[in-house]
């Protein structure tokens, strides 16, 4: 796997200079490679991982299981593309499950708002057969990052000669 991508996936705020230093490469070369990844759509964006529970934002999210009937020529793509237009929809993935087809992540201010969205916008779509809504109560880990982890180094930093 490309080391530049690995490093950026962990911390996208690393500069090309910092990445170059770590990999023993030239900064200009690394910058060019990142630009190429962006152009080719390998790198799609850079976002922050935010624990909204620690802010005053009213926020809930839910996982929605969607059973749908695929369209004749375009399979699941057509309905997926229809659904991802909604700004409330954070993620859409086609699953291998036997119980449902698409898994969505929906964000909203309140549980009620999310439930209304599912009932009024999603369930009413022609190809949607059924929905199941699961609200997220607490996030423990996301994108490989542990929420609320104590960020302390408990190693004894003093050096008395025996390490």
């Amino acid at each position: 796997m490309d080391q530049i991508l690995q490093l950026l996936e962990k911390d996208c705020r690393l500069t090309a200079d910092q990445i170059a230093a770590q990999l023993g490469r030239k900064p200009a070369e690394v910058a060019a490679e990142i630009a190429r990844y962006e152009k080719e759509g390998v790198i799609l964006g850079y976002t922050a991982l935010i624990d909204w529970d620690k802010t005053d934002r009213e926020y809930v999210s839910a996982v929605i299981e969607l059973k749908v009937s695929p369209s004749r020529d375009r399979g699941f793509d057509k309905i997926a593309e229809r659904i991802y237009q909604y700004p409330e929809v954070q993620a859409v993935q086609l699953m291998s499950s036997s119980g449902y087809d698409l898994m969505l992540i929906i964000e909203g201010k309140t549980m009620k708002e999310v439930a209304y969205f599912v009932a009024n916008k999603l369930a009413t779509l022609d190809s949607v057969i059924s929905t199941a809504t699961h609200f997220v109560l607490k996030k423990y880990k996301d994108m490989g990052v542990i929420y609320g982890a104590k960020n302390t180094d408990e190693r004894d930093q003093a050096y008395y000669g025996l390490q």
């Binding site: 004894d156 930093q157 003093a158 050096y159 008395y160 390490q163």
Partner: peptide, 16 residues
């Protein structure tokens, strides 16, 4: 290093 333990805002690169 006893003093280091009492100081705050230290960036340590000491451990083995």
């Amino acid at each position: 290093f006893d003093l280091l333990n009492e100081m705050t805002d230290v960036v340590a690169l000491t451990v083995g």
